[in-house]
């Protein structure tokens, strides 16, 4: 009796594995690759014919020494330094002194880098790490505070840069879902295209 039950359990598990573990993901992969290959393969963005990243995955805009480059909009701080194979947050609790010191330090650095007077309120997304460490977006306020610095570094008019920020702002889906945000990689790629002309 027991042997029959165990045999049924094993065969049932293996047959359900064929259905749910092999047929299900493979059929869906096939469908996705035919219907929306761009999205199914990671929404890649290209420059000069080469993939430079994904519109969904944030990346760092720093020099070889890790210093932020003034000619690019800077993404949020990242717990994984935008290593897309090590997603995650800092997991620091709200009262952890390490978190509070880090936020204060990042706020000072943000004001200095963007030539803002001391004490200027900094949007919190600019000084906090995201959950994934790969957040591709920043808030509009964060982008607008960075715009004059980017314009100066590129010898563009601030109005022109602000117009680009507006163009690469994604509004709420159906006017309700999510938050209006600016995609940093798309915006920086657009800036590079302007710079080339």
């Amino acid at each position: 009796m027991m042997r029959r039950v165990v045999r049924a359990a094993l065969v049932m598990l293996l047959s359900l594995t064929v259905l749910t573990g092999i047929a299900y993901p493979l059929v869906l992969t096939g469908l996705a690759q035919v219907a929306v290959p761009g999205r199914a393969n990671g929404s890649l963005l290209y420059a000069h014919g080469h993939a430079v990243g994904s519109s969904l995955i944030g990346q760092a805009f720093t020099n070889a020494a890790g210093q932020p480059l003034p000619q690019y909009f800077q993404p949020r701080p990242s717990a994984s330094n935008y290593n897309a194979l090590a997603s995650g947050g800092t997991n620091l609790g709200p009262s952890n002194p390490v978190l509070l010191r880090s936020v204060a330090r990042l706020a000072r650095a943000y004001r200095a880098f963007n030539h803002l007077p001391p004490g200027t309120p900094v949007p919190s997304d600019a000084v906090t790490t995201s959950g994934s460490g790969l957040d591709p977006d920043i808030s509009i306020a964060n982008a607008l505070l960075q715009a004059p610095r980017v314009a100066a570094a590129r010898h563009l008019s601030p109005a022109r840069v602000r117009a680009l920020v507006q163009r690469y702002t994604q509004s709420r889906i159906l006017g309700i879902l999510g938050e209006p945000v600016v995609n940093v990689l798309e915006l920086n790629l657009a800036l590079n295209r302007v710079g080339r002309h």
């Binding site: 949020r76 919190s124 995201s130 994604q170 945000v181």
Partner: peptide, 8 residues
């Protein structure tokens, strides 16, 4: 409280 949260 955006620590550990995504802005989108």
């Amino acid at each position: 409280n955006l620590t550990g949260k995504e802005v989108r």
